[in-house]
């Protein structure tokens, strides 16, 4: 009885912390990237909690709707936030397991994120503006290259989970894979995990509109991809869009962070601290790329994405090979 209560209390605590991280922390990590970028340039920069102040301001502003837009435009921001948060609930952040886990949840993960992208594309098409249409078409065409890569990454992770699928009774699940990973997994499956991590890092940059694929601070309307799609949103709608983007970045970063450093501590707080450090390190990497490189010419992006696809495919192949080698041996 006591043991069950203890387990319940512990799980409740873990879930609360995970929800807190997922819902409250994303703007702070954006603030960290902005601050790092400013310091790298030699400026003082805004405080790291500035995104919270920006969201507060936006939520108090009024809205302006173009007469060309319809219902899709008004529902899209909610859908974007909902999809980002749902995806985040599937990734085990700072905890052993994720709040949502079931067989096949990694497919749901991929497509819930795609749903968010669909919402933003439809909203930008709804405005009837040539610009936003251009941004939507760019986003869609790059997604056509990025989604297969994402899928292969998830397949590779799912295969890894097959080493011991019975631990949680789930197959093809993010929790199922990541909860079983330990630092030693890298020793055995390193050749598969390394290209996977690179491919995932490229996807982090692409999906979250960072340099070298897109410039989140650009004022050049003809070069924008993500930014141009939210040009028409104002006030609380814009707050939701920005918040949804911040959550999405955190979701991707936590996935990569968990793959690179899968160790799980006994103490919940040690887990949280490690998580924050991992995301901090990844934010520094994102900033380093942002500050060290210029943005790519638009026609070179498919080439890089193809490279990421090849890395992800390589990861799947190596994973299959390794599974063949290790099948039958105690894991």
């Amino acid at each position: 009885m006591m043991a069950e209560f203890a387990w319940l209390a512990e799980t409740l605590m873990q879930r609360t912390i995970q929800m807190f991280i997922l819902i409250v922390l994303p703007p702070m990590f954006i603030g960290i990237i902005v601050k790092l970028k400013a310091v790298a340039a030699g400026r003082k920069g805004p405080p790291i909690w500035q995104p919270y102040l920006d969201l507060a301001r936006l939520s108090r502003k009024g809205v302006v709707y173009s007469t060309a837009t319809g219902q899709v435009f008004r529902w899209a921001p909610l859908l974007v936030v909902a999809s980002s948060i749902t995806a985040g609930l599937i990734v085990p952040m700072a905890g052993f397991t994720a709040p949502i886990h079931f067989s096949g949840d990694l497919i749901v993960f991929a497509y819930v994120l795609a749903l968010g992208r669909l919402a933003i594309i439809l909203a930008s098409l709804d405005t009837g503006s040539a610009f936003e249409g251009m941004g939507a078409s760019r986003e869609a065409s790059f997604a056509a290259l990025a989604e297969p890569t994402m899928f292969l990454i998830l397949v590779s992770l799912g295969l890894l989970g097959h080493a011991d699928p019975h631990k949680f009774g789930v197959e093809w699940s993010l929790t199922g894979t990541l909860a079983q990973m330990e630092m030693i997994t890298w020793a055995h499956y390193g050749p598969a995990l390394l290209p996977l991590s690179f491919a995932l890092f490229v996807l982090i940059l692409l999906e979250n509109s960072r340099v070298p694929f897109d410039d989140p601070t650009t004022h050049l309307e003809l070069t924008m991809i993500h930014e141009v799609m939210i040009l028409d949103h104002s006030g609380p709608d814009l707050a939701l869009m920005e918040y949804g983007a911040a959550v999405k970045l955190l979701v991707f970063q936590s996935l990569l962070g968990r793959i690179i450093f899968p160790h799980h501590f006994e103490s919940q707080w040690a887990d949280v601290v490690t998580f924050v450090i991992k995301i901090g390190v990844l934010s520094v990497c994102v900033t380093a790329v942002e500050v060290g490189m210029a943005r790519l010419k638009m026609n070179r992006i498919p080439g890089i994405l193809l490279g990421a696809f090849i890395l992800a495919a390589l990861s799947v192949v190596v994973m299959l090979v390794e599974m063949g080698e290790f099948r039958g041996l105690p894991s």
Binding site: R43, G45, P46, H219, E221, E227, L231
Partner: peptide
Amino acid sequence: DLSRFGIGVVA
């Protein structure tokens, strides 16, 4: 550095 005051320029 306008950004240190939370003031930014938007498109």
